[in-house]
Design a protein around this nucleic acid. Structure first.
Length: 484
RNA sequence: GGCCCCUUGGUCAAGAGGUUAAGACAUCGCCCUUUCACGGCGGCAACAUGGGUUCAAUUCCCGUAGGGGUCACCA
């Protein structure tokens, strides 16, 4: 039991990497690293019909981007390759034949027509479910040879015992038992010579020395079938860890088909990567100490199987958003600028204002980088605005007050040279004192006059600094004109 | 429908046979304040249900309901 832990992530390249997939990869990675083991990537592309161009690349990119490192994989090599199932075709056939020799599998020559005819006739059980009737199991060795020689298309099926139950221990669900009579003699090798998942995963996991199989709950009740094969081969069964799904709501799984967010989408929307990974780790798992914000290294350190939840978890973007904001806030100014600039660049204001200053103002009020353009577009959309914006009960401000204050303020501001935030603030407060009005009245009116916007990423002096003297004078003049 | 599995606030979740049943997000209110945020403080809000077992069950057992998964030459 001192055997080195080896886990694997085995996605099929059928499209984008959704949150649930990434989470499975993460958990496999965390478990392996926590135990000083290896995390391996295997691509399950045995269904040519479902293959999507570029999907494998997305898998590589996403894992790399997220920081989930695998030590063996199609693009990295390793001692038990190839790691792409389509390149292992012969291996599966060889092992399938071994299973046939032991009686755990058999050739089946039934035509699609015969199979289809079973559906609507006699052979259904009480629930209307049709299972293969083991018709070809009774073929003699000679008959099989003959058909094989004649080139009759065939499939290889698993020979499930008619009686008995399969029991195993799952690391998160505990004891799981399934009756063999509820299982069908599933196809192991398809007529095109390719294995099905049901067979390939067993052969590969064994050959690749995977001793901890971590995957979605959808395999929970078919696992006894796999164990039957491990037993038939005389192989040691792996440990199993089944993961409950990530849901969009109480009854729907998160899926790309429904337009639900994939890792890529979230990154594109400007969620901080580290936050995405952190959040999905928390979806279905909680560390002993209940930490929430964790680095990958901390997650590895805190990972434990008993923190995994058995019930499905509903994905909540609001919490992801919050976490993303937490990561934004702790970034250095430089780091934030680096990550935010591409998003600032999407705004009309880009290039017209000091981007460093913009970033500084934005950082404490940003959770998702994609929100940035909408926060600063107003800088370039100045025009006539609703005078009601001057109304602010708390600051005792209104258009009337503005009419009173602004002209004199404009005169003052023409004479100011230093438009840095600190200098501006000092002078504005002094101006308020001189006139015997509240700071808030001056500041509120000025900010509205300068921006024509209710919500801005900063106060009056900050907006004035950002705009610069020339724009300030110009806008103030226009605002005053609008007040008449 | 059969089978397998699950069930603590709106969401993520901790928890244990005896607790005032944590915490976080969201939400609401207050404070701070140069808007918006940040921050601080506080509020609302949960053990699906019916039976057992037990001195005591939200926690253990059974049923019911609800939910998920599965029943493919898909993974």
């Amino acid at each position: 039991m001192s055997e080195k832990v080896r886990t694997r992530f085995a996605p099929s390249p059928t499209g984008y990497m959704h949150i649930g997939n990434l989470r499975s990869a993460l958990y496999g990675y965390l478990f392996a690293k926590k135990n000083g083991g290896e995390f391996i990537l295997r691509i399950e592309d045995t269904d040519q019909g479902r293959y999507v161009d570029g999907a494998v690349q997305i898998i590589y990119d996403t894992l790399r981007d997220a920081g989930i490192e695998y030590t063996e994989g199609p693009d990295k090599g390793g001692p038990y390759g190839p790691y792409m199932q389509s390149q292992r075709k012969e291996i599966y056939m060889e092992y399938a034949k071994k299973l046939i020799e032991t009686g755990a599998a058999y050739y089946c020559f039934c035509t699609p027509e015969r199979l289809a005819s079973m559906k609507d006739t006699s052979v259904q059980d009480a629930n209307g479910v049709t299972r293969y009737d083991k018709h070809c199991l009774s073929l003699s060795k000679e008959e099989v040879e003959e058909k094989l020689k004649a080139g009759v298309p065939f499939v290889i099926r698993q020979n499930i015992p008619a009686e008995g139950k399969g029991t195993y221990h799952d690391m998160v669900f505990g004891e799981v038992t399934v009756d063999y009579k509820d299982m069908e003699d599933g196809i192991l090798i398809k007529s095109d010579g390719m294995p099905t998942y049901n067979f390939a995963n067993v052969v590969d996991d064994h050959l690749m020395h995977i001793n901890y199989v971590i995957r979605g709950v959808e395999y929970l009740s078919s696992t006894p079938k796999y164990n039957l094969m491990y037993d038939a081969f005389g192989w040691e069964r792996p440990h199993y860890m089944h993961l409950s799904p990530v849901m969009k709501d109480a009854q729907h799984k998160l899926s790309k088909r429904n337009g639900d967010a994939s890792y890529e989408d979230l990154v594109q929307k400007g969620y901080i990567k580290e936050a995405i990974l952190n959040y999905i780790a928390l979806l279905g798992w909680a560390p002993k100490d209940n930490s929430e914000k964790m680095t990958l290294a901390e997650m590895i350190d805190k990972f434990s199987v008993d923190g995994l939840s058995k019930s499905p978890s509903i994905y909540d973007e609001a919490k992801l958003r919050w976490l993303s904001g937490e990561y934004v806030k702790e970034m250095s100014e430089e780091e934030f600028l680096k990550r935010a600039e591409p998003f600032i660049a999407k705004s009309k204001a880009y290039g017209k204002y000091d981007v460093k200053l913009l970033a500084k103002l934005l950082q404490p009020r940003t959770e998702v980088l994609g929100d940035i353009p909408a926060k600063i577009d107003f800088l370039e959309e100045y025009g006539a605005f609703d005078l009601a914006l001057y109304d602010n009960k708390k600051q005792k401000c209104s258009a009337e007050v503005a009419k009173n204050i602004l002209p004199a303020l404009l005169d003052e501001m023409r004479g100011w040279e230093d438009y840095s935030n600190a200098a501006l603030y000092e002078k504005l407060v002094a101006f308020a004192a001189e006139r015997g009005v509240k700071n808030g009245q001056v500041l509120w009116c000025l900010r509205i006059a300068l921006t024509g916007t209710a919500v801005t990423p900063g106060g009056a002096s900050e907006m004035a600094e950002l705009l610069g003297k020339e724009r300030c004078i110009d806008r103030l003049g226009r605002a005053i004109a609008n007040l008449r």
